[in-house]
Amino acid sequence: MSTCPEHIVQYMHEYLDGDISREHEQELRAHMQNCKDCQKHMQELTSTIAFVKSAAVIEVPPNFVEQVMQRLPKRKMRSGVQRWLRRHPFLVAAAMFCIFMSASLFSGYKNDQEFSVTKQPNLQVEGQTVIVPEGKTVKGDIVVKNGDIVVKGAVDGNITVINGKYMASTANVTGQIEEVDEVFEWLWYKIKSNAKSAWSFIDKNE
């Protein structure tokens, strides 16, 4: 077999993958006609494939679906807030009114509109978009504020995007990914901390 051209074995694999060219196939056949060693090699490869393919289907452990469903994270805080808002429309409207009338609070929010991102090696920043480049891995959490993040490589940690979008075609992120709409969260926070004044406002008007 030491006298056989090395590419003959390569052609065997091309043949087995079903993407051999006509020329390669002709050469392979011509060689094999006169070479017992290569006939044997090809025969062994074919039996190897048949052997692996005869693997029986593996049974899934019982209750697999139920166990996954139980382990799913509970619905997010945000949807809880949304339910709360639906149940208390008047209170929310009143609280919002209070907040928007309060100029000092509003300016406090506006100062917080600047783009920022957690400093991590391997991160690229283009304008207001943070990029995890292809083939690179960022180890650690990333927080992006007022900008977007595009993950082409991998992230070993959590990603939080405040006032922006997370973009990736596949999940190469080991941790949680969360998008926070800050205007909303901020209002929610203010509604909670101003609950007292909101209530007194409602009392006066009823």
């Binding site: 693997a55 289907v57 593996i58 899934v60 452990p61 697999f64 679906v65 996954v68 469903m69 799913l72 619905r75």
Partner: peptide, 21 residues
């Protein structure tokens, strides 16, 4: 959330098999 159980049912065999092998 419940709609996800259909997805798990559909793919559990394939996913488990890869992991087991």
């Amino acid at each position: 959330q419940h709609a996800y159980s259909d997805i798990v049912s559909l793919y559990q065999q394939k996913v488990y098999q890869v992991c087991f092998r």
